[in-house]
Design a protein around this nucleic acid. Sequence first.
DNA 1: ACACGGGATGTTTGCGTAAACATCGTCTGC
DNA 2: GCAGACGATGTTTACGCAAACATCCCGTGT
Lengths: 352, 352
Amino acid sequence: MTISSTGQNIDAPTRRASRGPSMADVAREAGVSSQTVSRVSNGQNNVDAATRDRVIAAMQLLGYRPNSAARALKTGRFRSIGVIMFTLSTFGNMRTLDAIATASAQAGYSITLIPVALPTQGEVAGAFSRLSEQAVDGIVIIIEAHILDRADITLPDGMPVVIVDSDAGSRYTVVDADQAQGARLATEHLLKLGHRSVWHIAGPRSSFSAIRRTESWRTTLNDAGAPTPEILYGDWSAESGYQHGLTLGAQPDVTAIFAANDQMALGVMRALHELGRPVPRSVSVVGFDDTEESSSFWPPLTTVHQDFSEVGRLCITALLHEIETTAHETGTTIVPTRLVVRESTAPPASVR
Amino acid sequence: MTISSTGQNIDAPTRRASRGPSMADVAREAGVSSQTVSRVSNGQNNVDAATRDRVIAAMQLLGYRPNSAARALKTGRFRSIGVIMFTLSTFGNMRTLDAIATASAQAGYSITLIPVALPTQGEVAGAFSRLSEQAVDGIVIIIEAHILDRADITLPDGMPVVIVDSDAGSRYTVVDADQAQGARLATEHLLKLGHRSVWHIAGPRSSFSAIRRTESWRTTLNDAGAPTPEILYGDWSAESGYQHGLTLGAQPDVTAIFAANDQMALGVMRALHELGRPVPRSVSVVGFDDTEESSSFWPPLTTVHQDFSEVGRLCITALLHEIETTAHETGTTIVPTRLVVRESTAPPASVR
DNA sequence: ACACGGGATGTTTGCGTAAACATCGTCTGC
DNA sequence: GCAGACGATGTTTACGCAAACATCCCGTGT
């Protein structure tokens, strides 16, 4: 050999190179059959204690690691779950992913990430076709967009799927936080404080959850007999909240704003600060998500708490059920939200 | 068969059940050998155009998807990269993961997430052993802690590894943002504005990057002949920044604070607002990370921008190089940072 | 004492793919 | 017109594992 440095790399008769030892090697070392090694490896109990010890010793000596490709080929199971999500992910998506990863790990499944760079239909379709070749037993989709309704995006037949945040409940299993309830809680909170109406900075029109929040806000206002101001559409970013905040802050009759997420609420509050309209004395602001930082905003933000961890956990529960029973179920599971009242909301000045 | 509902499930002679069609099925359908199907599947060009078309048509007809387990078993490559990270991840880690996922996808590799619930040594060791059985060609570790120095945590021999944020440059390939440069930029910025000294809210002692920021801050003060105030240690959270902010804000001689991340800076500013010490008129504040929201804080935060995307990209570049050449290299790659000056910093009142 | 049962262990086989090698037919150059 | 070459395609094989089946051995009941 030309390249040799450590001397350990003796390049013996079996020049298996980078492939590690196989069960056969362990079996030879322990003086048993490879099937016995397999039994030990899989924790089956019909192996004599002494034999088991010998096998384990041989495994450690050789540094044996099971080859999951061979195992998957034999069993037809990969013990892995694919997650499709946008590249530039939001706080909520990350928290959901976090919970999904944790729940999967506990069930002995690993997570394969399939990022989608842009929310264009072509990109998503590409991710799906890439996924077709991936080694996964099921898929979680965290793409909040209508794109999934496109007929040309199809999942492999028989592949279990769970979707977060979508309207596809009739075709797939869907898990989501109760967007409508959250938006109602936020709007009612402001109305109960005495505000005549509640202005709304919505999320993008392409987002299902944004639409649901907006519709619930509208319904709540209608039910209360309050007027429905014109909707301003943001893109979830603090910057878009800031821009709309400048607009709303210039209108003296605006006393209560419900932003569809915490970042936009942050931007709104920055605009109000700049315009000299104190929060909550002159304008009350409510957000959505309850991000870690929202309690440290100035002032601390009243917002709707979403239990992303629970959503992620339920996703995996439902998906594993489908994987292990091969039963295809549809329907939507809703996780409740709750209002967290902090210091960005107060009765309007006229009421005090 | 007892269970039959759709009628489509005819349970034909070949009761292959949930396994999809294989290359042999496609070959039969197209009237070629399975090897030819393999060649088409792998995009080799020594196949007649007409034959290729027939094979592709057969693939589509049968809904053929390559079995990656079999492919991995044969080739010894999984085309997948494992990422080990904490469950509750920070902004920066998520951005890095994002970049890693994107860069991997472009190179045709998928990402396998291995979450670690708690930063305890046992948890990490568990993740590593779990990982040993995972089907990955290389590993990226995004765990900023001394834990990795534990001798009992060992990676499988010959497994390429890249580490983000660590001191292990002598043993592994390390990629990281230039923490020292960033902290120096932040500290110098405040000194140049005329502040007598700069107080520091540090990250946790267990974090390498926090330590480097703190040391660089101290060195910069020393170089400038400025006194070195006592260090306050936070835990990256806005809440910890808030607590320390209450302490510092109560001291009239404190006019400049360098927080080791944006969240803690946010907490500091909240405390200063509560104490009636205007930012930046009475106290200047600088953060670290340049999170999306920091430009919408009140006031917009002066902070150090880290190029997480570049860090992630370089990780993958280095890792793929190691995977494909099997050369084991060590050393540290540093990505520059830059100061983003916004409105949370100004000369001290005494200078104006 | 002997048949029987059951636990421990071994042997055979095939999962789907791609490398290595084999074969076949056609085209080129002289 | 024929040897040689080369491109297209087929055949064989092994990757590492675990299910299915086979075998062996020892203890137990009658």
